[in-house]
Amino acid sequence: MKVWAVANQKGGVGKTTSSIALAGLLADAGKRVVVVDLDPHGSMTSYFGHDPDSLEHSVFDLFQHQGAVPEGLPQQLLLPTSHERIALLPSSTALATLERQSPGQNGLGLVISKALAQLWQEFDHAIIDSPPLLGVLMVNALAASQHLVIPVQTEFLALKGLERMVNTINMINRSRRQALPFSIVPTLFDRRTQASIGALRVLRDTYPETLWPAFIPVDTRLRDASRHGLVPSRHDANSRGVIAYRALLKHLLGQVPASQVA
């Protein structure tokens, strides 16, 4: 299984859209994909037609066992999606209480890693949608991940959020055996605005080694896909956004070191 996390400490940069678009393209290619919603807002869960406010069981259940994950629990939590080869580990609003509970518990940083270990033979890929703040949930996403995707909106306020995210990765890497590789992905690019063009130029100048050289454009077809609960490639396979995500996926599949792929 290849495990990718999608994270940024700023909201509204296209994390959920990126997670679902990449999952959809992998599934279209015949891969079995599990998507993990670690955001208490539950955008990914809602996207696929499940209500995070009313779900009785969610990834929150995984964190209720003092850092252990009971055998078979991850499989029990899986929900269907609109794509037959994508399964969802859903979020619920109860996740918002996890930060208050976690100080008294040890070992919570590896819960998602342990859950995915139980699903290792059932899926080819796992994509984790992370919350936009540093805490136990993002730590879980980064600890489980083999490669990190950082979507960054091409506007100047988002560049400060990226700086914080890179600092967080450097901090996390001090406790990992292997440094976590990451790809910065410019999103919501609008070539009609100087703000987008200028922000993209700054990204290319500042992060030449880790920046994906292309970008995800603003595309209303991506929003339309979410309204229908379909992965973007099933809604419009030839939209500008899907074409860009297809190029990104090709890049990511070439970036993951073979030594990190089970």
Rank of each mutant, 00 (worst) to 15 (best):
residue 122 E to G: 14
residue 50 H to R: 09
residue 72 G to R: 12
residue 95 L to C: 01
residue 143 A to T: 15
residue 59 V to R: 08
residue 125 H to T: 09
residue 42 G to C: 06
residue 126 A to E: 06
residue 70 P to V: 00
residue 58 S to A: 05
residue 145 S to V: 10
residue 122 E to I: 05
residue 102 S to F: 06
residue 34 V to C: 15
residue 132 P to M: 04
residue 45 T to Y: 08
residue 53 D to Q: 13
residue 120 W to C: 09
residue 98 L to F: 04
residue 79 L to S: 10
residue 61 D to G: 10
residue 83 H to I: 07
residue 67 G to E: 01
residue 107 G to D: 01
residue 79 L to P: 08
residue 51 D to N: 15
residue 113 S to E: 11
residue 70 P to G: 00
residue 110 L to C: 05
residue 56 E to H: 04
residue 92 S to D: 00
residue 37 D to K: 00
residue 111 V to W: 03
residue 103 P to D: 05
residue 57 H to K: 14
residue 54 S to P: 07
residue 67 G to H: 00
residue 73 L to V: 09
residue 76 Q to D: 14
residue 94 A to E: 13
residue 127 I to S: 02
residue 130 S to Q: 03
residue 39 D to H: 01
residue 92 S to E: 00
residue 40 P to V: 05
residue 94 A to M: 03
residue 86 I to L: 10
residue 44 M to Q: 15
residue 43 S to C: 12
residue 105 Q to L: 15
residue 52 P to A: 11
residue 139 V to Q: 03
residue 74 P to W: 05
residue 64 Q to K: 15
residue 119 L to A: 08
residue 41 H to V: 11
residue 82 S to F: 07
residue 145 S to R: 09
residue 77 L to Q: 06
residue 45 T to V: 13
residue 89 L to P: 07
residue 39 D to C: 00
residue 94 A to D: 03
residue 76 Q to S: 15
residue 83 H to L: 08
residue 93 T to C: 06
residue 141 A to F: 03
residue 112 I to R: 04
residue 119 L to G: 07
residue 45 T to W: 10
residue 111 V to R: 02
residue 45 T to P: 08
residue 89 L to Y: 07
residue 73 L to S: 05
residue 65 H to K: 04
residue 61 D to V: 09
residue 134 L to S: 11
residue 62 L to K: 01
residue 100 R to E: 10
residue 83 H to N: 13
residue 99 E to Q: 15
residue 109 G to T: 14
residue 53 D to T: 12
residue 96 A to Y: 04
residue 47 Y to R: 14
residue 69 V to S: 01
residue 140 N to P: 09
residue 79 L to F: 14
residue 133 L to T: 14
residue 64 Q to R: 15
residue 70 P to F: 00
residue 44 M to L: 15
residue 125 H to V: 14
residue 74 P to I: 06
residue 38 L to I: 12
residue 91 S to R: 05
residue 136 V to E: 10
residue 103 P to W: 02
residue 133 L to C: 12
residue 131 P to C: 14
residue 142 L to G: 03
residue 102 S to D: 06
residue 48 F to V: 11
residue 120 W to L: 12
residue 127 I to F: 07
residue 122 E to T: 11
residue 103 P to Q: 08
residue 91 S to L: 07
